[in-house]
Write a protein that binds this DNA or RNA. Structure first.
Lengths: 349, 349
DNA sequence: CTGAAAGCGCTTACAG
DNA sequence: CTGAAAGCGCTTACAG
């Protein structure tokens, strides 16, 4: 005994109309082999019966499931919502469902996740790779979204250019002594952002790089970053590679009685959800996830169309999508006297 | 011409071994109709050939796809990562894939999302409903994760009890004049949390409720909440229904020169990612998403097992999972003199 | 313990 | 323009 799907199938329509299932199929798929009049009758009957095509039947026959897999390094990353939402939308626009898999920041889990998706016969896989992973030839169309520095990358935000935007903004405001905050130097995204920042530092200006993960390992997770000392030593602007770190800096400075942006400017990256609601609201750089997702899906769909599912495919040529600077309240003109950690003029928002 | 799957199928194994596909199928599924010796040979050959069962073939035959759908009201909500990660994990543990669909906080989109999932033959759907939506009988097993007040709910955190936890904590610390911050009174989750809070207010103590959405509509998105005035008027503790609002309060207070927790205590809800890294770190209440996800999947799988996919199913009896209080740095003993907005003693962390 | 056969729902050459 | 037939990969009663 086989289980029965609810609703009707092609056979129901065919017998109700006294025609063959082949004709019903052709009529519904609009491939034009059926008279206009019959097409109409078939359509009407299908609607009447509430016919819903079986993806399983179609998949078995065509070898295509119209489902894509999305492998994420860490679903709990704060940027994930934006990414997942954009990709889900782009996929559904292209007529694909989206199966998600979390690689939990672990290489073995990532490999297993990919294998599970392939078992489920996805037509292609979108991967945001775990740091330092190179996606091998997995026998299935793939698009990689990461950074331009990632080998095999398909699409990404132009993180480097985003970094340039930040520094240009800060330099224009007169800042000459900067602190650049990253989390982990093995992240291509972060090193691209910092690379772009450094590339725009004019001669004479200085920028120190501060890696949070190293600091936390040494002093404990969430321990003070010692930002007050940096400010006392002359730093007038802090540029973080993520709003998460910018927020940490912002609240630490607040707590130490250092005013933002009067005493120090702070900038972030990614426009995470709270960035606009914090006081003062955070100047940040945003990626255009909608475009990135659309390009990734488009590339993937093109590769799928070219494949007969029997051979592997090299990634398309990488595309990069520009980032945009959102100037809000945490960045302002540098305080005039460098080295004075106690400027008092109020340039409030 | 039908497209060919990569890899091998049951037939390949069968002919390599000179047995029938039926036997191979039985051997691999371990239903015990095959001799131990043959089972071993089949297993070995399957491994050698890198055999991966076709879900499409199996689905067509069994009527089960082993895929579940997840419908979210708004993927970009900051709590979503926790939810999605927990559900993805629970689903994959139970042997199910997870198809996601974003309802973009819109009833029509939610309906369309559900329809798309059903077209893709999901075995069941998990829904976190949009506010105010009642999930109708959709002809497919469903589990609803929302609040206990939501009709048809399957599992949820015990938001009411979470609210009780917060107030018990604050009252113990000597607070008598509270401000309760919510966003939107039409959210069952939020009204449950606030209901729990109010239920534990002792006689004599007072709590004012402040709805952010109403305020923002009147004064503009992200505009100051006027918290300094509240504090001056005697409020010593602010309990928000979300870390997002707690963070907004925290930074606004900081900015106004009011110290947390020395002058005012602040608490949130949900332990969003930044909560522990902000200075001072946020006292909050966390749900046990892993348990909620496991219960939801378990209930759904049970319903699926009972169904022949031909009739609909009422939701199982609702379960509630207790929340846990995380006491961090933003809550402390109430300042002694009520009405004095300028307490100066340092009870710092 | 093992195999032959039917059938899940669909699409596509091919024949009429 | 329309239909009969084959086949995608699998599982399951049934027969031997």
């Amino acid at each position: 005994m086989a289980l029965v799907r609810p609703g009707s199938n092609l056979g129901d329509i065919a017998s109700a109309l006294g025609v063959s299932v082949a004709t019903v199929s052709n009529a519904l798929s609009g491939k034009g082999r059926v008279s206009a009049e019959l097409v109409e009758r078939v359509r009407a009957k299908a609607a009447e019966l509430g016919y819903v095509p079986s993806q399983a039947g179609r998949a078995l026959r065509t070898g295509r499931t119209r489902v894509l897999g999305l492998v994420l390094p860490d679903i709990s990353h704060p940027l994930f919502p934006q990414i997942a939402q954009a990709i889900e939308y782009a996929a559904s626009q292209a007529g694909y469902g989206l199966l998600i898999a979390d690689s939990r920041d672990d290489v073995a889990t990532q490999t297993a996740a990919i294998a599970r998706l392939i078992e489920r016969d996805v037509d292609g896989i979108l991967i945001i790779p775990r740091r330092g992973t190179r996606i091998a030839d997995i026998g299935c169309p793939v698009a990689v979204i990461d950074s331009l520095s990632t080998p095999g990358n398909t699409v990404s935000a132009d993180h480097w250019q985003g970094g340039e935007l930040v520094i240009d903004h800060l330099i224009t405001l007169g800042h000459q002594n900067l602190l650049l905050i990253g989390n982990n130097p093995s992240s291509n995204v972060q090193t691209d952002r910092i690379g772009g920042m450094k590339s725009r530092m004019p001669a004479g200006a200085q920028a120190e790089i501060f890696w949070i993960e190293t600091h936390d390992k040494r002093h404990g997770h969430g321990s003070p970053l010692g930002l007050a000392d940096k400010v006392a030593a002359g730093v007038t602007a802090i540029a973080a590679v993520s709003d998460l770190h910018a927020l940490r800096a912002l609240t630490e400075l607040n707590r130490a009685g250092i005013r933002v942006p009067e005493d120090v400017s702070v900038t972030g990256f990614d426009d995470l959800i709270w960035s606009s609601v914090v006081t003062p609201s955070l100047t940040t750089v945003k990626m255009d996830m909608a475009s990135i997702a659309a390009l990734a899906i488009e590339a993937l769909v093109r590769v799928i169309a070219d494949t007969k599912r029997t051979h592997n495919v090299a990634a398309a040529t990488p595309a990069k999508v520009p980032m945009a600077l959102l100037i809000r309240q945490t960045s302002a003109a540098a305080r005039p006297s460098i080295g004075t950690g106690s400027a008092t003029e109020a340039v409030g928002p």
